[in-house]
Amino acid sequence: MQPKDSLVGSCWKNNGEPCDGDVLTDVTRYSEMIINPDVPAWCSPTALVNCPPYHITPNNTKILRNDTANFPYGAYHYYCAPGNAQHLKQPVSLCDPYSNPQAQEIVQLLPHPIWGEYGYPTEKGQGWIGDPRTWVLDTGGLASRLYFYQDPNTPPAERRWTSIDMGTEIFVSDKDEEAEWILSDLDVILL
């Protein structure tokens, strides 16, 4: 069971254009923070297929996933690319094509010091059972630094995060699960 802290979602085409309802070319994009301390990083130097092609630091430095000295593998649980992308960096895992009517791309994060700049948990167990603190999350700031696929030589997509989801999601389990999530307050600040 992998409850998540927050998920932000958006939609844009692989060429950077806004979605227009065409399920063959629209791509739903998600970033989610998994706070369950028992969830390991599937992304690792020996499992690059589960990592985004690169990590972007707050000062806009790109660190390639094969840079084993600098890439923050422990910050990423799993990355999957949209199935309708034509110029993917190999190796790659494609997102499940059956849980959405159109292609999707998912970046799953884990608590790690690199996310502290955006107010997110920096250590396993933060925000989990027994840690009832108030969090001020810069979801837009974080999501703007994450890798999302785009076709080569196309203008950058305007990332508009149109949904924020707080709660649980049962991502991988081989048994019936029960989850409880308590959210006491939520303020959305638009800048």
Rank of each mutant, 00 (worst) to 15 (best):
Q126T: 06
Q126V: 08
Q126W: 01
Q126C: 01
G127A: 03
G127C: 05
G127W: 04
G127F: 00
G127R: 00
G127K: 01
W128L: 13
W128N: 13
W128T: 01
W128Q: 12
I129T: 12
I129F: 15
I129Y: 14
I129D: 14
I129L: 15
G130K: 03
G130S: 04
G130I: 01
G130N: 08
D131Q: 09
D131N: 09
R133I: 00
R133A: 10
R133V: 05
R133S: 09
T134W: 07
T134Y: 06
T134Q: 10
T134P: 01
W135A: 10
W135Y: 15
V136R: 14
L137V: 07
L137S: 11
T139L: 11
T139M: 11
G140K: 12
G140L: 06
G140H: 09
G140Y: 10
G141F: 01
G141K: 00
G141H: 04
L142I: 10
L142E: 05
A143C: 07
A143W: 13
A143F: 14
S144L: 12
S144I: 04
S144H: 13
S144Y: 11
R145E: 08
R145I: 03
R145D: 09
L146D: 15
Y147P: 07
Y147L: 15
Y147N: 09
Y147G: 10
F148P: 12
Y149M: 09
Y149G: 04
Y149P: 05
Y149A: 04
Y149L: 10
Q150G: 00
Q150W: 09
Q150E: 13
D151Y: 00
D151G: 03
D151T: 05
D151R: 03
D151H: 04
D151P: 05
D151E: 14
P152F: 02
P152M: 01
P152W: 04
P152C: 01
N153H: 12
N153D: 15
N153W: 05
N153R: 06
N153E: 15
N153K: 08
T154F: 03
T154H: 13
T154K: 15
T154N: 13
T154P: 02
P155T: 09
P155V: 12
P155F: 08
P156S: 05
P156F: 07
P156I: 06
P156G: 05
P156T: 03
A157Q: 08
A157R: 12
A157M: 08
A157S: 09
A157K: 12
E158P: 04
R159W: 02
R159F: 02
